[in-house]
Amino acid sequence: MRPFVYRRATDAQGAVATFEAAPHAMYLGGGTNLVDLMRLGVASPDLLVDVTGLPYDQVEETPGGGLRIGAAVRNSDLAADAAVRRSYPVLSQALLAGASGQLRNLATVGGNLLQRTRCPYFQDVSKPCNKRDPGSGCPAREGEHHNLAIFGHSASCVATHPSDMAVAMAALGAVVHVEGPGGPRRIGMPGLHRLPGDTPERDTVLEPGELIVAVELPALPYAARSRYRKVRERASFAFAVVAVAAALDVADGVVRDCRVALGGVAHVPWRAELLETTLRGAPATRESFVVAAEAEFAQARPLRDNAYKVPLARNVIVGVLEELL
């Protein structure tokens, strides 16, 4: 690991100022991804600004009936939070579907959102990778990509975003609160993450020095019935092949509203907007779910070895929506 300077911040303004004073600073949350990437040689900051001591470790109800989750809240605390389990079970389930008990005890909300892809080429410094080393090429496109993207990929990158938590937050329309050199701003999910285009080195729309301080979940009463289902290559402690976060609002046999987001299929947590539009106002039946899912997957562009994800994801979506009836 390359040497670096460590500084512990006590407030957001101080963290941002410290960050800006170094050429290659990074913020440190729980470290479960970043420390590993530093050890692998994928990340080599000259300064780590530890933001786990900032006063953002609470989950609070908002006046509008939603929740404000501090960026330093640990994944295990968020998954066990009574208000989250009651009003947004999809979020608790997504968190518990990810990683291990030990990792969830360290990992923070902000860090979870900003974790990097587990594409094997990105994590191996002996291989080219446009995300790690812009312009070096993407071996995944013709190589090992059976678990990579089917939506929104580009000639330069076919990586997927690895977070489960972010998929649930994208479905719930979470709003990310950011502090930074240009002042505070809010970013609605799924808009935090970006498609790779020809700049896959950028995972998100955050500018250098910007720091996530909170994630706000808007009130969404029908999310009290919501669900996360994850398919992976082993029963536990693995990244998603396909994951589905869904909430369904049905009245008189008709879908009034719905939220569906997918994990393991794109460079971003993929909000299935075409599916949602197709399903709103339709009869709440298996047939409608199939039609809506197929509308979404009409825009899929699977690679040589991952076309299996299309029927798999469609079937998981239909199954989850049927469970929510």
Binding site: Y6, R8, L28, G30, G31, T32, V35, D36, L48, D50, T52, S76, G101, Q102, L103, N105, L106
Partner: peptide
């Protein structure tokens, strides 16, 4: 670590003053 199980390989010692 402070009563909770963690992977000590991924915890930087300086971050746990």
């Amino acid at each position: 670590l402070d009563g909770r199980r963690v992977n000590s390989c991924l915890a930087l010692a300086v971050a746990h003053q």
